[in-house]
Amino acid sequence: MTDHGLYASTRTQRFLVWLTIVLGVVFAISYMGLMRFFPPPPASLSAEEVAPLYAEHNIRFRIGVIFGLISGGFIVPLTIVISIQMARLEKGVPVWAILQGLTGVVGSVFIWCPVLIWGVASFTAERAPELTLIIHEFGWLMFITPLSLFPMQLLGIIVVAFSKDEPDSQSAFPRWLGYLTAWQLVQSFGGPIAVLFKTGIFSWAGLLPFWAPFALFCAWMVAICYTMLHGLRHQERLAPAGA
């Protein structure tokens, strides 16, 4: 390999993967522990039922928002590492790496921005309940239903995993990761269906738009962090530090 000068050092990339893991844990704590939006409130709640979600434990919620805003971009460092690793394997202009990187960065807005919207809902919790309902639903639909970018991000990973020229055992993109990512892509299409339903398994608190993608996203994040670190370890072995 002659490309060591071309890409960020493996140590930097390793740091970025761990940054994603740490920020992801902070986000999970603020989302589940402080904002307490796990499991999600039912999509069928009336204005009078929604207002107390923000009015009760208001300060705890807003502290959750603060940490959510700090950590909401957790996926960005990982996205960059994935793109660098994809670019190593692509021939010519790394089209898929660019698509993955840009869609991943823009897509992270849809994790980070709902927190800010829920923050607005909690900021003046004593307002008319109908107004809180609007901003509450806006936040949830933004959190669950936007789809367009995520499949594009996943597509490049799938292509690289199946077309690369290095053996799986040394790669950051083993073929099984390609299939796991393909499953994630197929699953992701369930999200927008939540726009149509207020109750049941197809609503934003239901199996299809929330639980299944949530479980799979967690599994996918663990898997891809692992394969990135695995691939980086192998690249370090090939190129002694300082090369």
């Binding site: 990761l177 299939y179 796991l180 197929v186």
Partner: peptide, 21 residues
């Protein structure tokens, strides 16, 4: 290959949960 069965069993089990619901 072995990897595709992650996807196949994953999707089938997900649908099985929908059927059960």
């Amino acid at each position: 290959e072995a990897g595709v069965w992650i996807l196949l069993f994953g999707e089938m089990t997900f649908f099985a949960l929908l059927f059960a619901s």
